[in-house]
Design a protein around this nucleic acid. Structure first.
Lengths: 205, 205
DNA sequence: GCGCGCCGACCGACCAGTCGGTACGTGCGT
DNA sequence: ACGCACGTACCGACTGGTCGGTCGGCGCGC
């Protein structure tokens, strides 16, 4: 059995050999800078200081790298959402926590997020479906919190919950195009400001 | 002089020969579906029912097509912004008109917007600079309106104008990833709902 | 001395862009 | 009225180069 096949399950469990980690780090950086198609496998192995043989020993294909990048990001974000939802706070506090967490994790993984946003559509149909399902789960969980707040009367009823969700998740998905780690505002503050603005649009008269 | 060189100025003035228009339409659709690098020049010419010779007669390179796509979109959007700003309405009405116009033009040119968002970074340095400058102009014009409303007291002072701008333009830029022309809500309504929500976040207590 | 982990030259496919050529309309000298 | 020269529009086989992926081999630990 080659490591490439075995690797899928091992990596799915979050375990990475040092060589795999180096390859992933190099791939994410290069894909973010130059795009997936604009980056050659040779550039990745050079940057990771390994050889093509090693890369294809651990990964099945170039596409495989793309999927792993998505996977490492979505796993973190869904875990955050589940943790926050499970805490069982009120709608306002939950929305705030969700937005702040999303902004912080996205900022901490800007390269992954940038690659994901730009190249998601290049995934094979099957993997694409898995991605879409995860995204929709997040989207619906968020909208559910907004709807609950509206039913309970802690949020204004007028803005369609769907629109609020689109706006909130929209900024976050767009974040890689303007966020700079060395910018003046730390991610936590950015998240808080965005959350405040979203909640301001929801506060009852 | 080849048409490819002449074409730059002629196309900049908004004039397109029928052949150029066919090529552009095919290119936009294919780039939106498969990405820029994922689309071959041969596919474009086949879809446009012309030959490679014709394409390279009218365009200098594949990159040229990308730039023309951007150009046709940004020209419309900046024109809309200037028209609205020139109308001289109050901050609230101006913000609303800006958002609605942006959503409507983006929806009317989803393919262009999708390609632009994903492949902008592939532009050559010089053209990239021109793009960035235009985007910043739009961004700053929008923020300026928000700041004016805050100074005049018609908007709440708390949300940083920069954050409001990031949120408003963020949804619009993200629109190609979820908007479907055959969806239940027409673009005008979508724009109105988003504008309402943004203005709700700005309305004074 | 055997096999796992890795090496890297090489292969076949593919692709942007080229270029020698064709077809046709226009104007001009006779 | 005719034909010749010229420019524009377009054609499509071909080239030079690139890239993802392969595979026979090799060295080191056991």
């Amino acid at each position: 059995m080659t490591r490439a096949a075995e690797g899928r399950t091992r990596r799915a469990a979050g375990e990475l050999t040092p060589v795999e980690a180096r390859i992933m780090r190099a791939a994410v950086r290069l894909f973010a800078e130059q795009g997936f198609d604009g980056t050659t496998v040779q550039q990745v192995v050079d940057a990771a200081e390994v050889t093509k043989g090693a890369l294809y020993h651990y990964f099945e294909s170039k596409d495989d790298l793309l999927y792993e990048i998505y996977h490492s990001l979505i796993a973190i974000q869904l875990a955050g959402a589940e943790r926050i939802l499970a805490a069982g706070a009120g709608p306002a506090e939950t929305v705030r926590a969700l937005v702040v967490d999303l902004v912080e994790t996205t900022a901490a993984h800007v390269d992954e997020a940038a690659v994901f946003g730009r190249e998601m559509h290049k995934l094979a149909a099957e993997r694409m479906a898995a991605v879409r399902a995860d995204r929709r789960r997040y989207h619906e969980a968020f909208r559910g919190v907004v709807e609950r707040g509206q039913r309970e009367g802690v949020f204004r009823a007028e803005p369609p919950a769907e629109t609020v969700t689109l706006v909130a998740l929209g900024v976050v998905n767009q974040l890689p195009s303007w966020y700079r780690p060395d910018g003046p505002k730390p991610p936590g503050q950015l998240g808080a400001e965005i959350a405040d603005f979203v909640l301001a649009g929801l506060r009852p008269d």
